[in-house]
Write a protein that binds this DNA or RNA. Structure first.
Lengths: 328, 328
DNA sequence: AGGTGGTCTGAAATAGATTACCTGCCTTTA
DNA sequence: TAAAGGCAGGTAATCTATTTCAGACCACCT
């Protein structure tokens, strides 16, 4: 059995309170006693039982990171960013994604209530009222990673979706001189998708460019299907702006299958700058999002909230985007 | 404050023991009492305090997953596989990677000793004696995910590195009729790299094919550099078998920069079948590893060990590989 | 009717650490 | 020199849920 504070105390012939004080750097202990106790803890290779400590302190050095799923690099980067920052503060990161066994709502509620974690970072594609309600009366700090709309009243980190899409569209119209644009959106209940679409539309309107909208699903498959349909019709746009890179890649599949070339016959651009994008042929022009920063920033805000309990000012942080020009 | 078992008990006018029994499905409670208590717990929206529960039970429903780093899809897949399986058993997954703040050894030791987690899955590139020592006298179950050599005495999941490399080499020699092969290894202290090399060499020897070895680092950069050097010399092999896909991609960069074409001028194959591999041009022939299964299998073994405390039979599980033939 | 056995419930101990409060000693100061 | 104050360190309560042991109660059998 691992040594406990009690054993240390009995060996050192002091009370457990004194040992605890030494371990917690309480200064009300003489140097001599401190040294003696430290020596013993080292000899026994003692490690305080974190669970017991968390239990009495009624707080936890665990951070919950709730994701809709763990699948693509987007989430990896977030996990990495969060882990790196929280670890530096002595916290561990608990990763939970929605499973077939439990809905995201339930999962969030469980986490908020069971005391396991001292704070939560939640990535949601859209904020429904139910989740909002659950979050409102949370006893532990919460930070959202969200598309960016509708997050009033919560601490949140979001991506500059609107601005990124606007910049890209501006580039397509002004620099590339495209007159006829088509945007493939993400799922209609997804905030990122919504704002990207809005950025696209507003830019088109501003510069009086003709545009169309198709509704996709953020999947490669949906990009392919929509593009297939498009190529069968006889009204091709100059450029397809897919709301994420995976759909853009789906368009590549479809276009190449038809024997057309990118960007000569038709141009395709994306959003996200996923890892593959620079390797496909031709390399994809896209909007880069520094995903790791999203995780880091969220963790930073959370750590601040965990420490300063009384600070109730809401923080909304936006991670900026950048148009990456390649050859598509 | 969240309701506690005590409050439930006082409202229901029963003892806390009875409430605890109901919550733990102990059958020694009359249906009437059970119903009454369940009704109250639901009204109060009671959730048992997991930390307290773990504390009294002296066990944890947390699983530590220790990775050298969280970076590429390889790790994502592992996290996903582990999380999915452990969650189904009521466990949560704590992801920890080596940070600049702590070495992997220390991290492992901390996890093993502080009681936070009830079991650990460790992914290591190679097993040094220090880690072996730490693991040997671990009080909690440990499962390794490892290259595959030198894991006697531990429960482990490994990839069929040797067999995969052997099969690929066999394919290159017998089907593609290459006579002059070159292998770029991974880091020399990496077990996966070691076994892949051995599989390659043994196959070459078996079929009397000429071969050379270059020493890489598993990075795209190292693949590119080695290939640059190679192309400057005047003795090109028929095929470059890179010990992982990222180095193969590095070779692509180098070869394309020289204006040569794959596979006409020189062929390149890899190992791993990362996501990009089928999108690059030409699509990369490689050895596929079902990474998610690695995580799942490791979690499965761990769950079994956590449950059946007395079962000390060591399990070593090997995840099989498959040669994926594309156009490189 | 009294004994036996089984079922349901409660009281109390327990886990490992933190911490409020108290004691006792030593030093300082009037 | 006695009171006051500060400091080191001890005592004991506390956190929540589990679990052991014992007791209460009822039914059934002889």
């Amino acid at each position: 059995m691992s040594p406990t504070i009690k054993q240390i105390a009995s060996i050192a012939k002091v009370s457990i309170a004194t040992v605890s004080r030494v371990l917690n750097n309480d200064k009300r202990v003489t140097e001599k006693t401190r040294k003696k106790i430290l020596k013993i803890t080292e000899e026994l290779n003692y490690r305080p039982n974190i669970i017991a400590r968390n239990f009495v302190k009624k707080k936890s050095n665990l951070i919950g990171l709730i994701l809709p799923e763990i699948s693509d690099e987007f989430f990896t980067e977030i996990i990495k960013g969060v882990d790196e920052l929280t670890f530096a503060h002595g916290y561990y990161t608990l990763v939970a994604s929605s499973h077939k066994y439990e809905s995201l709502d339930q999962e969030i509620e469980t986490f908020l209530r069971n005391g396991l974690v001292g704070g939560i970072i939640i990535l949601v594609s859209s904020l429904n009222d139910k989740i909002k309600c659950i979050l409102k009366d949370s006893r532990i700090p919460v930070v959202l990673i969200s598309g960016g709309s509708n997050i009033d009243g919560f601490d949140a980190v979001s991506i500059e979706n609107y601005g990124g899409a606007f910049k890209m569209t501006e580039y397509l119209i002004l620099k590339r001189k495209y007159k006829n644009l088509l945007h493939i959106t993400g799922p209609q209940d997804n905030d990122d998708a919504l704002l990207r679409r809005k950025g696209f539309e507003d830019a088109c309107k501003k510069y009086n460019a003709a545009f169309r909208i198709e509704f996709g699903e953020f999947t490669q498959e949906s990009g392919r299907k929509i593009c297939d349909k498009l190529l069968k019709s006889n009204s091709l746009p100059d450029v397809i702006f897919a709301a994420n890179d995976m759909m853009a890649i789906g368009c590549y599949d479809s276009i190449k299958a038809k024997g057309l070339t990118i960007p000569d016959d038709i141009s395709v651009v994306g959003f996200d700058d996923v890892f593959v994008s620079k390797y496909i042929s031709p390399p994809l022009t896209t909007v880069k999002v520094q995903i790791e920063d999203v995780g880091k920033t969220a963790a930073e805000i959370l750590m601040r909230k965990v420490r300063e309990k009384n600070n109730h000012k809401k923080i909304i942080s936006k991670i900026s985007t950048k148009v990456i020009i390649r050859n598509s």
